[in-house]
Amino acid sequence: MKSKMLRPLILNLVTWSLVLLISFPLLWMIVTSLKPQTELFRIPPTWVPETVTFEHYWRLLTETPFLTFFRNSVVLATSTTIFVVGLGTLGAYSLVRFRFRGRETLAMLVLFTYLLPSVVLIIPLYLMMVNLGISNTLFSLILAHTTFALPYALWLLRSFMEGIPDDLENAALVDGASRLGAFKDVIFPQLLPGIISTALFTFILSWNEYLYALVLVNSESVAPLTTGVMTMLISAFNIEWSLLMAASVMMSVPLIVVFAFLQSYLTSGFGAGGVKG
């Protein structure tokens, strides 16, 4: 009887302490962003700000190019996602539905490029961008993000696609649909959960990416949030903690919103990748 009461108690205790541990940096980020400058380095620290202020947010939005970075990040992550999901869906479709020589080899090769550390690819990519005359543009960054997000997306979508029976498409063909029509009417609705979770993965990957952005782009007008905010607020002599935390909060908001709405699709994506990818 006693152990029956104790078990859930311990489980709850462990779970909540883990949750607190993991969410502490997030909470601290929010708290810090709301404190006035004077309260920032007080010892002992105040857990709840004595005075809540939004001046850091205001300063970021009005006095810095934060909004430019934000717009760049939105364009970058959205374009990358559209590219990757579009190419990945078509690629996965042909890898699953058409029989051609070297099909498996091709799929393995694609996965292999995913295994290469991205640092190895940065310099060649940078040189290619320079030769193409598109270095230091947002477009070059979109291409670069596509190169590292596509292989994983392809494998994820492939495992989703393999779960759709051939007969469904055959039935649509016999019923009078063209191949593209069958894809649109039958395959696509079945694939939608896979497409959504792949899009989420890609968006998050691109939104949070730092290294490529740092190397490939160096002017303020095309920098995304990750590198833009860092170079703006962190210098050798000083770190603008309040502004940094306010920027971090605003950077996280889109992801949190997206997560909240599409969470169930994301977990199904983890499942598909885990079983087959």
Partner: peptide, 11 residues
């Protein structure tokens, strides 16, 4: 018109 073993109804 074809009837498939799996019925292949559009889910």
């Amino acid at each position: 018109a074809m009837v498939f073993q799996s019925y292949a109804l559009y889910p």
